[in-house]
Structure formats: C-alpha cells, structure tokens
C-alpha cells in the first residue's frame, strides 16, 4: 500500500493515505487489522473526493484527519477513534457510533449520527434533515442549524443545536434531550419545550465546551418527551 509514515515528536507515527492512489477498501482493511499492532497514532487521509464509507468500523483509539469532503457513512459505527473531517460530509456521518469522537468542520448532509449509541458527533456548520434520527445515546453538537425531523424517535443522548431547528423537531422522541439556541419551526408529536434544570445547564455547558462553541447556556431551550405516546392511545384518533 502506498502510504507514507512520518515519525512524531512523541515517538509515534503519522500515516498518510492518498485516496487518489489507494482504494477505500484497502485503507479500511489496514485500519481494521494493522493499527493495533503498529506504532501509528495519527492518520491523514488526502483526496477523499466524496468517497463513501471512509474509516468505517474502526475500533482503536487513533486520530484520523480527512483533508476534504467525504461521502456517505463516513466514520460509520465508530468505536474509540477520533475522526476529523476538514470538509463537508454526505449522508449518515457517524451512523451507529458507539464511542470516540467525530468532528465535521463543514456541513453535514442527512441523517447525521443516525442511531448512534454513544460517543460524540460535532458538526461545526449546519446539518440537514433527520439529524440524530433514532439516536440511542450519542451526543450530537451542531454549530449551525438542523433540518426537518431531527431527533425523530430519538431514544437517548443529547442533541445540541446552536442555530435553528426545522419542522417536526423531536417527533416521537423517547428519552433523548434536545437543546436549541435559535428558533424551532415546529415540534413533532409528543415533543415539548421545558425549562432547563441546573443539571441541564451543566450538561449543556460541558457539551458546548467539548465542541469549542462559546454560547451562554441560558440562551437555549430544552425539548424533551411529554411521554404521552409511551403507550398506544386509541382515543387519540391517530392525531398526534
């Protein structure tokens, strides 16, 4: 494989993958099977050019920087790795993330952090539709706005939106908590705005600090489940 190694000051190595020269498949297989036996602590990926499935299924504590735009499912099912995308990402970045951190310096397309179980996803600009759909414990912090139906059926974790939220925010939400700084176009079924508790302020401040976003937690609204859909209700006439 045509990847270049460079020694860091800490004695560890940085490895370079040029996706104009190496296939995503070869690179992913290297990341799956060779990292834990190596002295590599940092990976740079250049010329991603919107390729799909970059750095998926990782399970080692390595730092990865992607220099450019990535396609669908970037850093999908991540465990432990710290992945930074210096560009925009396609659909479903960090889907089903279990742990570790994924940071998108640009914009994220649909379904960012879908079904994530743990770890942190930071999107510095906007995220499109269904951000945090079906999330199960991941913390998602968005520097800009999120599109319609974000946090749909969100089960656990936190979605922080520093900009505005689109229609149907938190539709059919379970135990996840949403914090929104800007406007909410509309709430989805069973989602309601609640006052922030002291604990909310602490959690939110920690998440904002983690992302490097400087906002006052008092500027945020809390959205959570009214828990009226936890048991099927025939008398609601399906008008939720």
């Amino acid at each position: 494989m045509d990847n270049l190694a460079r020694k860091n000051s800490d004695g560890k190595e940085t490895l370079l993958f040029d996706l104009s020269q190496t296939t995503v498949r070869d690179m992913n297989q290297f990341l799956h099977h060779n990292l834990d036996k190596s002295n590599v602590s940092n990976i740079r990926i250049i010329h991603p050019d919107g390729a799909h499935s970059i750095a998926v299924g990782l399970e080692v504590p390595v730092n990865i920087e992607i220099e450019g735009h990535a396609g669908y499912f970037c850093a999908g099912m991540n465990k432990q790795a710290n992945v930074t995308i210096k560009g925009n990402v396609g659909w479903s970045v960090a889907e089903n993330i279990m742990s570790g951190m994924v940071r998108v310096k640009g914009y994220a397309s649909e379904c960012a952090g879908a079904s994530g179980h743990g770890g942190t996803l930071i999107i510095e600009r906007d995220a499109s539709l269904r951000c945090g759909i079906s999330m199960k414990g991941v913390d998602i912090i968005v520097g800009g706005s999120v599109g319609n139906f974000s946090a749909f059926m969100a089960q656990a974790g936190h979605l922080v939106v520093c900009g505005d939220a689109g229609d149907g925010l938190g539709d059919s939400i379970y135990e996840a908590i949403i914090y929104v700084r800007g406007k909410i176009k509309s709430l989805g079924a069973d989602a309601r705005i609640e006052p922030l508790t002291d604990e909310d302020h602490k959690v939110l401040a920690k998440l904002l600090a983690l992302a490097g976003f400087k906002h006052d937690t008092k500027e945020f609204k809390r959205v959570a489940s009214a828990r009226q859909l936890y048991h099927w209700n025939a008398d609601a006439n399906q008008e939720y």
């Binding site: 995503v24 498949r25 992913n28 799909h52 499935s53 998926v56 299924g57 396609g71 669908y72 499912f73 999908g76 099912m77 659909w91 479903s92 889907e95 089903n96 379904c111 879908a114 079904s115 269904r130 759909i133 079906s134 749909f152 059926m153």
Partner: peptide
C-alpha cells in the same frame, strides 16, 4: 434511519461490506 431509496441502499451495503 440512515438510508431511504435503492441508490442509498447500495451505499449502505457497501458500508456493511467495508465494516
């Protein structure tokens, strides 16, 4: 939650194969 139409499904399968 992370794909909708058949073209997305193609890419989803690719992700599972990569993993």
């Amino acid at each position: 939650p992370d794909w909708t139409g058949p073209d997305d499904l193609t890419i989803k399968i690719q992700e599972l194969r990569e993993i």
